[in-house]
Computed example of a mutant assay.
Amino acid sequence: MLNPTYPIKTPRLLLRPFTMDDLDELHSFHSRPDVVRYLPWDARTYDGTRAALETKLGQAALSAENGTFNIAVELRETGALIGDIFLFWRSPEHRQGEIGFAFHPDYHGQGLAFEASREILRLGFDDLGLHRIYGRCDARNDASARLMERLGMRREAHLVENELFKGEWGDELIYAMLQREWTPAA
């Protein structure tokens, strides 16, 4: 079970549960075609964002029954909601999880997704005791691939045309890290 004390503080960020007050800021990037280009949903309407947010409200703790941990990434300096980060508990038996993220483009290139993702890896390895955490991305999503490499995850696979994604066959990259490879002070 993963039920952290909130907010989780990093040097520049607060990681916290979503609230309904996040609706407008979440919609500001979930509604953008450039943000969702490589995500499994289309640009969301306001009502679609509200429905997604209502689901996120119950995902601030992780258990075998609730296999999705999804929290808000807030910029400490301004209080702006800048990202949406996930840890899926894919296999309690094999102690495997999957990381995922979506960040507002206005905050790209500043190392903020890296900072938030490092904390999610820490929670997965140190607090939940996962053996392996992996991430997947469309092979055309250079930014996500670079982020996972920067996190120290190794590229394990390049799957060729493995899924029909938004109307076209797409390649997928899989990156992973084992608990013994995790270095918290990096």
Rank of each mutant, 00 (worst) to 15 (best):
50 R>I: 00
164 L>T: 09
96 Q>E: 13
143 A>I: 10
151 L>D: 05
20 M>Y: 03
44 R>W: 00
94 H>V: 11
10 T>M: 01
131 H>A: 08
107 Y>K: 13
127 D>Y: 12
157 A>H: 09
131 H>E: 11
60 A>G: 09
144 S>W: 00
131 H>G: 02
168 E>D: 13
171 D>K: 08
67 G>H: 12
23 L>P: 02
153 M>H: 02
176 A>Q: 07
131 H>M: 05
61 A>T: 14
126 D>Q: 14
134 Y>C: 09
41 W>P: 07
160 V>I: 14
107 Y>W: 15
87 L>A: 04
101 F>W: 11
150 R>T: 06
166 K>I: 09
154 R>A: 15
29 F>R: 10
121 L>I: 04
122 R>V: 02
92 P>W: 13
183 T>K: 14
17 P>Y: 05
76 R>N: 12
11 P>E: 08
69 F>Y: 12
54 E>N: 11
95 R>H: 15
65 E>G: 11
178 L>C: 09
99 I>A: 03
181 E>L: 00
135 G>P: 01
140 R>E: 15
60 A>T: 01
90 R>P: 03
154 R>H: 14
20 M>T: 12
184 P>M: 00
128 L>D: 07
122 R>P: 03
111 G>Q: 02
113 A>E: 02
32 R>Q: 12
42 D>M: 10
80 A>V: 06
186 A>I: 12
62 L>N: 09
112 L>T: 03
9 K>Y: 05
96 Q>T: 13
59 Q>T: 09
127 D>L: 10
21 D>K: 15
27 H>A: 03
59 Q>E: 12
52 A>K: 15
141 N>S: 06
33 P>Q: 10
181 E>K: 00
105 P>R: 11
24 D>A: 15
129 G>C: 07
142 D>E: 15
8 I>K: 06
171 D>R: 06
146 R>P: 01
104 H>Q: 07
186 A>D: 15
15 L>R: 04
86 F>Q: 12
101 F>D: 02
85 I>N: 01
177 M>W: 08
141 N>G: 05
92 P>V: 06
121 L>R: 04
150 R>Y: 01
32 R>G: 00
76 R>G: 11
57 L>P: 00
60 A>N: 10
112 L>C: 08
15 L>Q: 05
164 L>G: 05
105 P>M: 08
102 A>Y: 01
142 D>N: 13
169 W>P: 12
86 F>P: 06
60 A>P: 01
107 Y>E: 02
155 R>V: 05
137 C>I: 06
27 H>F: 03
102 A>N: 02
34 D>Q: 15
167 G>T: 05
131 H>R: 10
32 R>E: 00
186 A>N: 14
131 H>Q: 10
60 A>K: 06
37 R>P: 00
83 G>Q: 00
64 A>G: 09
146 R>K: 14
62 L>I: 11
